Simulated assay, not measured.
Amino acid sequence: MMDLTENLKSLGFEAGLTEDEKECLYLRSRSAGLTVSGCAHAVFVCQLVRLLRKKVSENVTSKTHLSVGIIGGGHMGKQLAIVLMHVNNIKPSDINISTKRPENLVEISKTGVECYYDNIRLAKWADVLFLCVLPSHLPQVCADLRSHLPSRCLVYSFTSATPLKRLATLLDHSFIIKPRYEFVACGDVTKMWYLHSEVTAALKDKEVLAASIPTSMSGGLSLDLSWVSAVLYSLLNMCTAEKLGSQKALQLLNDLFKTNITTNTFSLQSFNSSCASALLNSDDPFPWINLVDAQTKETPLSDLVSRNQSLQDCISVVFQNMFSNLEDGPNDALPGGNRN
């Protein structure tokens, strides 16, 4: 039966708003855009880490699956968990959530994701730990985690109000990635972010996925390219943690980013120009990179990412390929999304 009310403007969300309220509509796009792109970038990191671990296990004895921890069961924590569950090779049993109200995550628990309230337990278990908590809750969460985070646990923070250096001090931990987004309201182009009622559906939309590419975001959003450098340095640190020689680590990273655009993306100088000559004829691992410094100071890699279009194109291809087999998920509605 035909729905005669479909697309009737008088029944739309905007119809009941005052002119003053309409001026705030950009916040709707901003919220949806940050949710979609934030989840996409987090999944990209998890997939890169998982694939690298698989490659590393071919050279040394190490675990291959990825343990993903999420602290916070609010909007962002739920959305991230749902998207992760519909990515190839990440099982619900590989995801744990620590939240003050695990009883609110019954539907997610039924899928096999463990939900409980024990931040210390989660910190000891996770390989990648996402902080999805309010700024007011962060000091207590950091107090729980401090001294319990393994040095190789990658912390990824979505809590925007706390500067990176302050977060590192609170956690006494420097293996941290903190994306920095900017949003500029620019008319109808920002509407793409809330045209889908599910994050998984949004990421299957080629236009939305293209707008989420870390090195060339659009739709009013942009991402500081220091994030890209931090992600790449984090992969290098994981090789160092397994005591892989610099040449082998470099080979694995080049394999990870091999595309039809390029087969040899990185060199020793890409990551550490000061010790490149020393490592050239050596099998020593790369030195451990402080990710806080990598996101707050100029580095050889940040310079390469900013000026090398070929590298940016390569990252774009790898990013989009990560979502080529994204499965349909349950109804994980976005704020202000189209629910018709």
Rank of each mutant, 00 (worst) to 15 (best):
F13L: 12
E19D: 15
D20H: 09
E21L: 11
R28H: 04
S29P: 00
R30K: 12
V36Q: 03
H41K: 06
C46K: 04
L48R: 08
L51K: 15
N59K: 14
V68R: 10
V68F: 07
G69D: 06
G74T: 00
M76T: 04
K78C: 10
L84C: 06
L84E: 03
M85L: 15
H86I: 02
N96F: 06
I97V: 14
E107N: 13
G112L: 02
E114W: 00
A123Y: 08
K124D: 06
L138S: 01
C142T: 02
A143Y: 01
R146A: 05
S157D: 04
T159E: 04
S160N: 14
T162P: 00
F175H: 14
R180I: 10
M192W: 01
A202V: 08
K206L: 09
K206R: 14
L209D: 14
S218M: 06
S218F: 03
G219I: 05
G220C: 05
C239W: 05
Q247T: 11
Q247A: 14
K248P: 02
L250A: 09
L252Y: 09
I261F: 07
N264W: 02
F266M: 04
L268V: 04
S273I: 15
N281L: 13
P285H: 08
N290V: 09
P300D: 12
S302R: 14
I315Q: 05
V317M: 05
V318C: 07
Q320H: 02
N321I: 06
M322I: 15
D328M: 05
